[in-house]
């Protein structure tokens, strides 16, 4: 833990819209970005539905917050770990997800994907590296 920077992981396990956890969880991440901590997000279980592309809430008269995920890269939140097993259980693949990217300032601002598909062992290892894990 150098320079007082802590590793925060936000674990998202809920689908959007059915409950407010996904939307308010995202608000925590965006506010937290101002604190210059080492932040990542994990999408597990129904949390993977948050990243589904093509969300359209026009007819359900709710706020569509899916575009907000696109802003994460601008806030230096660029490690979005999606558990492979959760995707597969739901008949999904990376192609079903939003194409989220960020500009890597250490690599000539090249545009790189923020979403990283990880298996359960990799995700378990990542969790063990965190200081604070918040689960929604």
């Amino acid at each position: 833990m150098g320079n007082g920077v802590k590793k925060f992981m936000y674990v998202n396990r809920r689908a959007p819209y059915g409950t407010i956890y996904a939307l308010e969880g995202l608000e925590v991440v965006l506010i937290g970005a101002a604190f210059d901590q080492d932040v990542c997000m994990a999408f597990v279980d129904d949390g993977v539905f948050q990243l589904q592309k093509g969300q359209d809430t026009a007819e359900s008269n709710m706020k569509n917050f899916s575009p907000t995920y696109r802003a994460l890269g601008d806030y230096d939140v660029n490690k979005l770990y999606v558990e492979k097993e959760s995707l597969e259980q739901r008949g999904m693949s990376e192609d079903d997800l939003l194409a989220l990217t960020y500009e890597d300032e250490d690599d000539d601002y090249k545009e790189k994907p923020s979403i990283r598909i990880v298996n359960r062992e990799e995700l378990a290892d990542l969790m063990e590296q965190q200081d604070i894990i918040l689960n929604y």
């Binding site: 007082g4 802590k6 925060f8 608000e27 925590v28 506010i31 937290g32 101002a34 604190f35 901590q37 200081d131 604070i132 918040l134």
Partner: peptide
Amino acid sequence: GLGQLIEMGI
């Protein structure tokens, strides 16, 4: 504000 949650984590 929500910043208080992050600060709590720190």
